[in-house]
Design a protein around this nucleic acid. Structure first.
Lengths: 154, 154
DNA sequence: GTCGTTCTTGCGAGGCTATGCAATAACAAC
DNA sequence: GTTGTTATTGCATAGCCTCGCAAGAACGAC
């Protein structure tokens, strides 16, 4: 069933410990959570809450939206996903967050990519020094226009 | 770090031309738009869509939400407001945008303040130089924690 | 003032996300 | 296997925002 796509060093294996991670915290392993984890294990990069709900429903039509969102909250606490908001304000979850990063999104075409701590360092340090504000890079969103896109006429 | 922007030098006068601005574009001056403009004229800094709806309803209980949101879209096209998304993903409108600025929001207490072009210059220039990406400062959101707040336990 | 054009509104419906609550299922202990 | 505890689920509901559509209002022309 699994294709030969080792991709990240973690891969599906990284999810194997999820059940234990839940147990250790006195949380439970349920069929619903299993399904959600399965779907996430096959996802790399970003996924919105709505997308996840949809994919889960494709496998089990009885999937309940609120359960998915609540599970996502739990997984975030366990560090399996991290959420932020896209340029359109929608929830966006990062699967297997290897390195926390900010998001850059084109307001024209919707293209998105990442920004690392290194890229943002000057600004992050400035805010920390000036205001004592600790930036959470995963919650940084930078909107703008990529080379091919023009700002909307005004 | 103030939570809102002080009253602008423009004040109500800046809104006086709104009716003409609409006319010039073949758009119409309606009682609903007048109400919304009135409320906005008394607002400085930020306001969320929901807040605006609420304030309009306080003056005219018959206010319809979708009308407010649509008017906001029109006003944005005319340059009277500018929208972005708060740390929680909610819509947020900037009234009388004098200087475009980015938003910094505390994920703990919700406090928010502004970041100017000057503050972000290094990063903006880097993105422009490296990727040809033109940052829209009004669509930049920086989440993190202010001195009094701690990241959620994990 | 009347008329016609077309922009707006009101309204209903729907999508995404969050939350409260009672019923249920997981798990540990026996 | 049974039981008790309590985390979870399912469901209903609600809030915010968007969209389609038909009825209505604003504006310009006469």
């Amino acid at each position: 069933m699994s294709t030969s796509t080792p991709a990240s060093p973690g891969g599906k294996a990284a999810w194997a410990g999820a059940r234990e991670a839940l147990r250790e915290r006195g949380l439970r392993w349920t069929p619903q959570r299993r399904l959600i984890l399965d779907v996430l294990a096959e996802t790399s990069g970003h996924i919105t809450g709505a997308e996840l709900v949809e994919r889960c429903r494709a496998r089990d039509a009885a999937t309940i939206g609120s359960t998915v969102y609540r599970t996502l909250d739990v997984l975030e606490e366990l560090g399996y996903v991290r959420h932020s908001h896209g340029a359109d304000g929608r929830e966006e979850y990062h699967v297997l967050p290897l390195a926390e990063h900010a998001h850059i999104g084109c307001l024209g075409c919707g293209a998105a990519w990442d920004l690392t701590w290194e890229d943002a360092r000057e600004l992050v340090e400035r805010l920390e020094a000036r205001n004592g504000f600790r930036v959470a890079l995963g919650h940084v969103m930078i909107g703008g226009y990529c080379p091919g896109c023009e700002p909307a006429e005004r």
